[in-house]
Design a protein around this nucleic acid. Structure first.
Length: 279
DNA sequence: ATACGCCCCTGGTGGC
DNA sequence: TGCCACCAGGGGCGTA
């Protein structure tokens, strides 16, 4: 589920529940996620207060008054679940970490495939130490524009779609939104990244921004599971132009003229595009 | 530095 | 019903 818009949606639903709360207790059901949980994980969290929530790329950030930040990555199958006080139902299978707040709520990290991760880093060194170090600019931030994208793409021989998945180049775009943004920009996913430098980069920047902004407004996309901590789900999948729509006409072609959306595999992952509307 | 293949892990789906 | 192949929103590692 989780690319930038989905993580943003999770963060926004989690924040009102956790902001300012004290973590009375943290429990760990299993520590072997993508990486092992940090040493003394539960002890370091217990008794701390959550001073704020945030997001960077696909990471959910929870700042604690202990001076540490918890960096949660949901991987492919991760989600956060909230349970109200007095809920006696057992936690879902694959809930690996549970945070119990001082007002009786529980926030669980659920991740069947365990491609996700949880790290603790000093808040003061959040950007420079740990998994956020070296990430590219936020696509919706000031540091992302035609000039910086052009510079990042210069000299890159790989396909533009593969390049967009490189988190060092720009952070937060995943497999769905790479295909969606390229269609919006009218750029073929097969083009060498270096040929997108210059004028097309400006188009692509605007397409990425518009796509992500609209997806966030829709609370992200829900493909096969419930994404959001309260059990709700995003609805941006209803606005997909190409993702998962092999064989269907694309919205950019005039009626009756679309050859049909194609699915190809790039770097081992599905890409969807229209060979007529994207050059 | 860049590029590519492979791997991590579980679950859902569709074909036979 | 059972079994199997294939697919899935991510990223890190080793190798040229």
């Amino acid at each position: 589920m989780p690319e930038l818009p989905e993580v943003e949606a999770v963060m926004r639903r989690l924040a009102p529940r956790l902001q300012g709360r004290r973590i009375a207790r943290a429990t760990v059901a299993r520590a072997d996620l993508r990486r092992m949980l940090p040493p003394r994980f539960a002890e370091r969290l217990g008794g701390t207060r959550v001073t704020g929530l945030g997001r960077r790329a696909k990471y959910l950030l929870m700042r604690l008054d202990s001076g540490e930040s918890m960096l949660i990555h949901l991987g492919m199958s991760g989600r956060m679940v909230l349970r109200p006080p007095g809920a006696n139902a057992p936690p879902p299978v694959h809930e690996h970490v549970t945070l119990l707040t001082d007002d009786g709520w529980a926030a669980g990290f659920v991740d069947p495939r365990r491609f996700g991760s949880i790290d603790l880093v000093p808040t003061a060194a959040e950007e420079t130490q740990g998994p956020l170090a070296g990430l590219g600019p936020e696509p919706l931030g000031d540091g992302f524009d035609a000039a910086t994208l052009s510079a990042a793409l210069a000299g890159r021989r790989s396909a533009i779609k593969v390049a967009l998945l490189d988190q060092h180049l720009v952070a937060g775009i995943g497999n769905i939104y790479a295909s969606e943004a390229l269609h919006r920009a009218g750029i073929s996913p097969l083009r060498a990244a270096m040929t997108v430098a210059g004028a097309p980069a400006g188009l692509l920047v605007e397409a990425i921004r518009a796509t992500l902004t609209e997806a966030i407004a829709a609370s992200g996309s829900s493909l096969r599971d419930h994404v959001l901590p309260d059990g709700g789900h995003g609805c941006f999948q209803q606005a997909f132009r190409v993702y998962g729509r092999e064989g269907l006409p694309c919205p950019a072609c005039a009626p009756g003229t679309c050859p049909g959306i194609r699915r190809i595999v790039q770097a081992g992952r599905s890409t969807f595009y229209c060979p007529r509307a994207q050059r």
